[in-house]
């Protein structure tokens, strides 16, 4: 089971749009609420871990270092804030700037992690399905391109081998690599353009352009999709209302100040927590259901 893979692409899109929009929306000096940003980061990392488990563990290290760097760089350049920690070259390093750096780093890395999961789940055929609903023609041309890319890569390898066998390609030094590269690319351009007519004939033969196309797809919109999409949209609206109302406002400069804890702010935090961990919830729900079904056998 991989979180979200079985959902309709539209559902997946709605979910990620909601959670990422809020994550990015809070990336401004007025509403940069550390709790929301932290929830975003935690949810993003959890979602990614659910899909990938221990795979590609070293990439986490990279982002951790990036987090530290972003945190540290801000106070070195930004001298706002009232709580001076130390002074470097006559420039004060402030606590506010440091915390601001940490919060913005959380925001940026959170968004990056959301996109990492999004890229994995939203494979090209799913994106095509979404685009097919907006513009069948654009989706078709994209699909054609996606068909060509692996084909051209394979052909590029063949061309490299062929030219090498003729003694016209080598990659021993920089200049011959450039020369070889242009040669291979030149062969590819001719090959691709000249044979394009076959694809074109094959499209015409099957009646392309006669009437308005439909867009076929193997994805279905099921009940689970309705539930998840509705949940995403409702939570999104609640959070948006909460943020706009100003009850989760948070300011770092000149000194840390924030709107007090109110019913609205608590609801907003809970709503965002739910939204950010939705993939984790659906995943564990699935697992429980399987366990239950298994135990019944």
């Amino acid at each position: 089971m991989k979180a979200f893979d079985n959902y309709n692409p539209i559902t997946v899109f709605i979910y990620f749009a909601s959670v990422i929009t809020i994550g990015m929306f809070c990336l401004n000096p007025v509403t940069m609420n550390p709790l929301i940003l932290f929830l975003s980061l935690a949810g993003a990392v959890t979602t990614y871990l659910i899909r990938n488990r221990t795979e590609g563990a070293q990439s986490h290290l990279f982002f951790f270092v990036m987090f530290i760097l972003l945190t540290v760089i801000n106070p070195l350049f930004n001298h706002n804030g009232v709580t001076v920690l130390l002074i470097i070259n006559n420039n004060p390093v402030t606590l506010e700037a440091l915390l601001y750096g940490a919060a913005s780093a959380a925001a940026i890395i959170g968004v990056i992690y959301w996109f990492r999961s999004f890229s994995q789940i939203m494979t090209s055929d799913k994106l095509l399905y979404i685009l097919g609903n907006i513009s069948p023609k654009f989706a078709l041309i994209l699909s054609m391109t996606l068909r060509y890319v692996p084909m051209f890569e394979k052909q590029t390898q063949k061309v490299i081998q062929a030219q090498r066998g003729l003694g016209l390609y080598s990659d021993t030094d920089f200049m011959s690599r450039v020369r070889g590269g242009t040669r291979v690319f030149s062969v590819m351009v001719t090959w691709a353009l000249e044979n394009g007519v076959i694809t074109s004939d094959s499209m015409t033969a099957r009646g392309y352009g006669i009437t308005k196309r439909t867009f076929f797809s193997i994805f279905k919109f099921r009940r689970q999709d309705i539930i998840l999409s509705a949940a995403s949209v409702i939570l999104f609206l609640i959070i948006l209302a909460g943020v706009i109302s100003g009850s989760v406002n948070f300011k770092f400069y000149p000194e840390i100040s924030y709107a007090g804890t109110t019913v609205i702010s608590v609801i907003t935090y809970i709503a965002y927590g739910l939204l950010a961990f939705l993939p984790a919830f659906t995943e564990s729900g699935e697992e429980l259901r399987w366990k239950y079904l298994k135990s019944r056998i």
Binding site: V149, F152, T156, A192
Partner: peptide
Amino acid sequence: KKTGTRRLIIVAIMTALSVVGRFIPVF
């Protein structure tokens, strides 16, 4: 707009070429 099949193909081909070209060194 109504776009001819061959125009469509040329766009797809040029795009695919530029994507594939990104994998060739130096290019």
